[in-house]
Amino acid sequence: MSECNYLYGNYCAEKRVTVLSQMLDFCGIEKDRLRARWVSSAEAPEFVEEINEFIDVLKPLGPSPLKKQTSKDVA
């Protein structure tokens, strides 16, 4: 965590993600749909692993029930 190029940026982001994920959950949206991980640009394998893991979590959840339809159905 202490390796952020901008010193504390990731800590600050993490705090906001903490709040947001719980708010999503409160609104009935699976909090697993939001994820923050710290992977440096030099860590390609870790990045792949993280993304694959995330995909494994996301797939069973299916598309978001809020996904916008292309046409606007109500006004």
Binding site: D25, F26, C27, G28, P65
Partner: peptide, 15 residues
């Protein structure tokens, strides 16, 4: 009370 509801109920409530 809201937290005690299940996820899908919370979702439809807020939606």
């Amino acid at each position: 009370d809201m937290e005690d509801m299940d996820l899908s109920k919370r979702f439809s409530f807020w939606k």
